[in-house]
Write a protein that binds this DNA or RNA. Structure first.
Lengths: 137, 137
DNA sequence: TAATTAACGCAACTAAGCTGCAAATATAAA
DNA sequence: TTTATATTTGCAGCTTAGTTGCGTTAATTA
């Protein structure tokens, strides 16, 4: 059984050809993916609706997470193994390159401890850093 | 001379009726504004293009800054007084309420000190917190 | 293998935000 | 104060990300 099939099974997702291809795209990449990139790689004969629906399903089940890019478009990246539908929390920073627009998860940064504020309840904390990446420096 | 006119002058912006109205909207609000809200308040007879252009101009000059909301739409909020076109940096967290979608700047949080990472250059750091606000708790 | 349930693919739609251009308005110069 | 210049505004129409509905196809369950 392939890794991607096992993963899909673990997350209670049906093992379709399309989803396997999509998941492998993520596994073969070290940065987050745009829908444009996915369209290109997966073949233009696949419908964009299918892509959007698969991404949403993956996200809900905790397989991937969404990252905003510089222009507020969506990018997606694989989650750490610990995520699932009810606990879908990322304590890493996201870095967006101003030049190549590449977006990646940075695990090296100590995620800040945020003190509580009276009257608020914090559920999700995102740290987004913009600048230039090693390739564009 | 009104405060808003003075502000526009300070930022080298022409003092039009529309911009004064828009700026006052920001000054009379303690949270960030959506384009929808602005459309409503400013009167439907004002064109959306004018709104978008004014917001972009304000942002470039350092009067306001853009905050992403939960659905990756744009919201805008007044900057601290220190911002200008060449130095447009916000070291405060943005809070987004999951229930009422309201988005506000939280100055109370100590902005995390991010250590440098070799090969990267950091220019802008955003801290976005989601959860529930005092009204919705 | 048949029945059930979920995913796919297509077409058409929605909504945010942008572009080009002509008319109106604000500022600078005379 | 009037005129000339530069900027903004408003309109129409466009682009593009993302969604909805629905009939068909494929994956799982019995």
């Amino acid at each position: 059984m392939s890794i991607s099939k096992k993963l899909l099974n673990n997350y209670g997702l049906r093992n379709t050809a399309f989803r396997k291809k999509l998941l492998q795209l993520f596994q073969n990449s070290d940065s987050s993916l745009t829908v444009e990139y996915i369209k290109d790689k997966i073949g233009r004969n696949n419908d964009k609706v299918t892509i959007y629906r698969a991404l949403n399903t993956f996200e809900k089940s905790g397989l991937i997470h969404q990252v905003p890019d510089r222009n507020n478009l969506s990018r997606y990246a694989l989650c750490n193994v610990e995520c699932n539908p009810s606990n879908h929390i990322h304590h890493h920073a996201h870095f967006i390159c101003d030049y190549c627009d590449n977006t990646l998860c940075i695990e090296e940064i100590d995620f800040p401890k945020i003190k509580k504020i009276k009257g608020f309840k914090f559920k999700k904390i995102e740290l987004i850093i913009q600048g230039s990446c090693p390739k564009c420096l």
